[in-house]
Nucleic acid binder design. Structure first.
Lengths: 191, 191, 191, 191
DNA sequence: CACTAATCGAGACGGTACGTCGCGTCTTGTG
DNA sequence: CACAAGACGCGACGTACCGTCTCGATTAGTG
């Protein structure tokens, strides 16, 4: 639609290979060690081809770490405690992947200069918010949660706990941690 | 100690002015927009004078954002719920100051490359951990908290919630938020 | 001949408009400031249409500055002094036109890389050489010139004087200059 | 004078080596094949160090081809015919050196965009003009030259003949050519 | 009336080089 | 010693053109 008109079409290979190269180099070199020229070279293309597709390296990193099709797998459907555990584990698994944990701190630092990245990430996870909002509403109706508990708070707390975990104790986010956190939250929001 | 021997003594003015300049420019330009030359110029000195004092710009930023004398004011001493509220508010107030919120994401991103900064920040807040550990131990003895609740989890959750707040909803960390979070945690850790 | 077979015929308009656009832009921007995309745009066409007709921009410039039909108007037929004056003025008038004086230095610089352009320009002016050779032969027979004077030297000297004039004193090539130069040459080649 | 004040002084080695590298690469690759990075590399330095000294590559080429100390060796002092021959040979020898003949066409093409280079070259050869002017004045007084002959015309003609020779018949500028040209000029300017 | 073949526009392609910026270091003269 | 000043090597940046290619859509002549 946006480029239905004439002109040589873009090679799909390049977008694909560049994102793959970026993911590899993120893990190998870290966000701060990522070089535009290195990504281009590993992808078998050149810098101008990159800048035709992404306005800057952080934009490319963002798309490499959070492709359009990623999402937190929520698997809601059990009792509240089980669902909370699932949410915690889902968020943890997404954010502790090598690529995401390498990219995220750098991306967050770039948010101050690139608001569109910030907005984009928020929107990417809006689905989680909506789903969780609905689940929480049901919990309130079932008498499993207080009426003043808000989904945004809950998601932010889970997200934050994972974030702090990546930064401070990356190895400590095991299933025991997930169990303790989800238990505390489950008890914490009960009436 | 390290430079007790002869020679011209360092001007105390420079260290003071450079830190002040760094704080100003952090707020004005953000972490990513901070330039060594700009800090030196605003402080009325030069780059070599800076590098004599700090090994790199992130080290300077770290000291500018977290001076030796900062600490979370905990004011423990009330009942558990009040103390938890105080902790949340204390962490929030420290991390949401303009300078710290501008510096922190960038510093976190640098942790991957400069482990000594990482370690230094952890150590700076070890006091909070110790204090909270002691408070939680008393709560367990008083029957206000479950025995399996661990202070590290709790601090990390509070820290993470503030961090996520800085990143995603900087304006939303009002006293109501602090009340909701501390309430949930208080209920969550009760036996 | 070269494209007698089927297919859509070239639009004559394009060749014409491109050459005109190149002439305009040569005068406006100079040889070094000439851009393929700019020429194409001003001619209302595109780069590929250009490269279908000329192998490179210098080739196009060459044809724009020296079309097939240009030639030095020699008007030989008077006495030797008059004819020499006519030659000097003819060469001067051709090479000091805005388009040619803008194109020539750049083209000369390209000769080192594109020998075919070099050869082509020499061939284009071979007519002058032949005519002058014949005129000089007659002058020798008439006793107006020494037998060892060679036409190539003479043409090269006139060409060089005009070239040096373009480069060093573009405004100084008036009729007085032409008179002085032709007089010196006339006297110089006499027996 | 211009940088008498503090700061690390420039390394004389760099200016020297860069000019030498430029001269080598001009001969090896030609003006159009000259690359800033290649010059820097061969000189054992970097692009920024080059741009600190010269505003652009043509400025550097200009200084490489025409150092402050170059000048046409005129050796005036004999009779007029001998001196004219000496002038022709002197100009020829300067401009047909590998470095100058590689640099000059490209430089001339740049004159359109960099008037300061143009002016600089003119000034560089003003000495020749002055010397020749004086010699011609004596010739007029001695009755060896017409009073209306002007030194500028003469220099320009010699320069132009050499220029045209470089462009059109580089191999043909032998001593016979110099003899023929100087003879024609000598006869041409006689009363 | 299809078929063929080269053109047209548009614009992305791989590629090369550009000129600039910022880092952290070094070298001077001065206090 | 430290200071101001400023060039240094280094490495990366984002941009500008180049000349080519790939489209879908014309536009003749040929079969």
């Amino acid at each position: 639609m946006e480029q239905s008109a004439g002109g040589r079409p873009r090679e799909a290979r390049i977008e694909r290979d560049v994102l793959a190269a970026a993911r590899e180099l993120l893990v190998e070199q870290g966000f701060a060690g990522l070089r535009v020229a290195a990504v281009a070279e590993r992808a078998g293309t050149t810098k101008p081809a990159l800048y035709r597709r992404w306005p800057s390296l952080p934009h490319l990193v963002y798309e490499a770490a959070f492709p359009d099709d990623v999402a937190v797998a929520l698997h809601l459907g059990g009792d509240l405690r089980t669902d909370l555990y699932g949410i915690v584990v889902g968020v943890r698994d997404l954010f502790t992947s090598p690529v995401v944990s390498a990219a995220l701190p750098g991306l967050i630092a770039e948010f101050a200069r690139r608001p569109e990245l910030h907005a984009s990430l928020l929107q990417r996870f809006s689905g989680v918010f909506v789903d969780l909002d609905r689940r929480l509403l049901r919990a309130v109706q079932d008498g499993d949660a207080r009426a003043d508990v808000c989904a945004d708070d809950l998601v932010q707390t889970v997200l934050g706990a994972v974030l702090a975990g990546i930064v401070f104790t990356p190895e400590g986010l095991d299933d025991g941690w997930a169990d303790r956190l989800s238990t505390t939250l489950w008890k914490g929001i009960r009436p």
